[in-house]
Amino acid sequence: MEALLDISRRETCRLALLLHLFVFSAAAQCLRPEVGENWILTEETLLKNDFPEGSEATLECDNGYEKKNGSVTINCINGKWSESDIVCKKKDCGPPPPEPHMTFDDSEGTLFGSKVRTLCEEGYRISGSSFRHCYASGWFGRGSCNIVTCPIPTEVENGTISWESDKKPEYGQIINFTCNPGYRLNGSERIMCSKTGKYDPLPPTCIGVTTEDSITTKIITSSAATTKQVSTSTPRPKPVTTLASMRSSTQKQDNRSSLPKRTAGTTILPYSTSSVYKDQNLQTINVNKSNRHLPVIVSVILVTIVGLIFIFMLNKCLDKRKGSYDTGEDLKPELLHFQTL
């Protein structure tokens, strides 16, 4: 009986000892550490299942962050983890790598999570993404600046163009236009590929030359060579105007009515296909046409005035003679002598 009691006591003590060891061991073990602000557990720490008393856990900064200062380890002491003093900051991607004809607007900064806008130089256009994003691995986003092109110009009817390539004209390139004989340009003779991908100004056309244009061309080409000619004149004494000279001048003026009048100081320009020179030439001819009738008008007015003066004087003489015979006025001695005879 006593033997049975001894065995029972031994088992009871053994169970008590095991229970004590289990409770003490459970109280001394730490749980898995929790992540903090901008830091996480390393892969080595994550692979552990138990964290007994005195064990160590390693830390690292979260994705997109880097260590600024502090320790990367914590320890299990009395079933609790020591405080972590690690400080993590955002990574700085720095300026984006330069690319041809491209600039960046980094007003939002270059830290992790920010983005910059890509800008192209004048005459270039973005192809791809318009933004670059700062990720943990660096800048992400593809884009390039390509030069602006314009459509290939079409052939102009009754004229030719200087563009002979199969490629599209690029920004800043100039194309010249010329018209065939008998035609003139309606618009500018030069156009340029602009930054918008359109021509500035618009392409011209070739239109047929009118009768008025032909007359202007003949007059200008016969009066001038390839350079400007400026005619000048020196002042001369003004001749006395008589009735005969006025008539002779009128006849000469009528004979020359079909020719353009060339006055002192008039500048004659060679014929040009430009509409600016055409307008100037037409204005010169219109002024000459209006001025060629001026001498005729002046001559008629002067002849009329002289005639009226002659008639007036003749009438006065007749009135004097009539008054002498009718009223018995005293005649001059010469007239009395004439009556006596």
Rank of each mutant, 00 (worst) to 15 (best):
E2K: 08
E2R: 12
D6C: 14
R9C: 15
A16M: 11
L18C: 15
L19S: 13
L21S: 11
F24R: 07
A26Q: 15
A26Y: 15
A27M: 10
A27G: 03
L31W: 08
L31D: 10
E44M: 06
L47E: 15
D50H: 10
S55F: 03
K68S: 07
S71H: 11
I74A: 03
I77A: 01
V87R: 01
C88P: 10
K91I: 13
D92W: 00
D106C: 06
S107K: 14
T118C: 10
C120G: 09
Y124E: 01
R125G: 07
S127C: 00
R132C: 00
Y135D: 06
A136S: 12
G138T: 04
G141W: 09
G143T: 12
V148A: 00
P153N: 08
P153H: 09
T154V: 06
G159F: 05
W163G: 04
D166A: 09
Y171V: 01
Y171A: 02
C179D: 01
C179S: 02
L185I: 15
K195S: 15
T196L: 06
G197Y: 01
E212S: 12
T221D: 15
T221K: 06
S222C: 05
A224I: 04
T227C: 11
K228F: 13
Q229A: 14
V230E: 15
V230M: 11
T232Y: 09
T234V: 08
R236G: 09
P237L: 10
P239W: 15
P239I: 14
P239T: 15
R247E: 08
T250M: 14
T250Q: 06
Q253C: 13
S258H: 07
S258L: 09
L259N: 11
T267M: 05
L269T: 12
S272G: 15
V276A: 14
V276P: 04
Y277I: 12
N281T: 11
L282M: 06
Q283I: 04
V287Y: 05
L294M: 13
V296F: 03
I297G: 03
V298G: 09
V300L: 09
L302W: 13
V306N: 13
I311L: 12
I311V: 12
M313P: 00
N315Q: 14
D319K: 15
K320C: 06
S324H: 08
G328M: 02
H337D: 11
H337T: 10
